[in-house]
């Protein structure tokens, strides 16, 4: 049985999420599925951000807070993830809005139809 520590497992999960996301964006034809794939890709990146701070993987550059650095995870990346979630949500909302406009025109969600270049 393979024994894996928590950090390696979460890196692995993040990698799988990123690969699934990239596959979905480039090889799935449905626009809504593409947007869901983008969300999965974003989750993978967020998980990577969270995982690197677990178990003091990063050198904490605050010499006057040695005590704090010893007993806590790196706090910076968690703040970054929160910001990134907001950015992603707004991007996806715009894309869904435009998809609605294009769906009304073409009555289909296939990217090969609605995003076709003339």
């Amino acid at each position: 049985m393979i024994v894996m520590d928590f950090q390696t497992a979460s890196f692995l999960t993040a990698g799988i999420l990123i690969v699934i996301g990239l596959y979905g964006v480039f090889f799935v034809d449905n626009i809504i599925k593409k947007i869901i794939a983008l969300e999965i890709l974003g989750s993978g990146v967020n998980l990577t951000l969270i995982s690197i701070c677990y178990n003091k993987y990063i050198p904490i550059k605050l010499p006057n807070m040695v005590n704090f650095a010893q007993y806590s995870a790196y706090p910076l990346t968690q703040a970054l993830v929160l910001t990134n979630i907001v950015i992603e949500a707004s991007m996806l909302a715009i894309m869904l809005g435009v998809s609605i406009i294009l769906y009304k025109k073409y009555k289909t969600l296939k990217c090969s139809v609605i995003l076709k270049e003339d």
Binding site: I31, L38, G42, M91, M95, L102
Partner: peptide, 10 residues
């Protein structure tokens, strides 16, 4: 615009 955003998120 949609094409730009799709690639943009990636």
């Amino acid at each position: 615009g949609l094409r730009y955003l799709l690639i943009g998120v990636v």
